[in-house]
Write a protein that binds this DNA or RNA. Sequence first.
DNA 1: CTTTGTGCAAAAGGTTTGCATTCCT
DNA 2: AGGAATGCAAACCTTTTGCACAAAG
Lengths: 132, 132
Amino acid sequence: MGTDDQFRMTPQREVILEELERVDSHPTADEIYEMVRERLPRISLGTVYRNLETMAERGMIRKLEVAGRKKRFDGRAGEHYHVRCLECGRVGDIDRVRGLDALTRCRKLAGYQIKGYRLEFVGYCPACAGGS
Amino acid sequence: MGTDDQFRMTPQREVILEELERVDSHPTADEIYEMVRERLPRISLGTVYRNLETMAERGMIRKLEVAGRKKRFDGRAGEHYHVRCLECGRVGDIDRVRGLDALTRCRKLAGYQIKGYRLEFVGYCPACAGGS
DNA sequence: CTTTGTGCAAAAGGTTTGCATTCCT
DNA sequence: AGGAATGCAAACCTTTTGCACAAAG
């Protein structure tokens, strides 16, 4: 009575996971592809996309929902905020901590020069009310 | 010594602007295209894209920096937050008000069932430091 | 032998761009 | 004329998908 199908830890997945955990840059799919390709030259971009998706569904990695054209992925656990560079698009982390406000942390930890923030709530609209 | 080139208020731009101000749904470019097309059947999608971009640069409208695949546009002035429906992708507004916290407002005003939020800071990373 | 994953290449979705033409001024 | 904007179609970039083959249980 397997509710979920079996997941196989293939070499491709192992390497993707390792590379993703090695960096803290929230790479895009094609960046991950390039990183992985140095170790598995024959891997295909399609496989990278498929596996990132699969692993994100299983909670093994995180798919970032940030503004911008390309999707980004993250090997880190735990909730945290992000900082996006207006110039180069780079995305950094900010721990989600109480007590010390995030803006201050941001300046201190990452050296980012903060210009503002975007707050986006998510949930179910009246029409879709299906959420619960 | 014209720093900026001249901007012409063409019928196409007028209609795009009117339609955008008429709704509060933060339409995507193709939704705007459909709306506008009922009044200007011969307008092209390219023109819509170009004009949305141009008008956003001039601050006449706002290009939303929200998560998701398609870009969205907004005819409203003033800063405000957004709510995104996890089911249908609809994007609603929440005024940025002090005193009454946003979560409460969100439930009251829009009837959204809030499941969480995304906070994204923006600024310049150490490498791009050019911001000032 | 059945299921799951892979590589490859084609398709799809969204946006941008080149070019000849039209519209203003 | 001369610059700016338009329509059309082709190009582009990112992501997804179909399919035949390979690998794992």
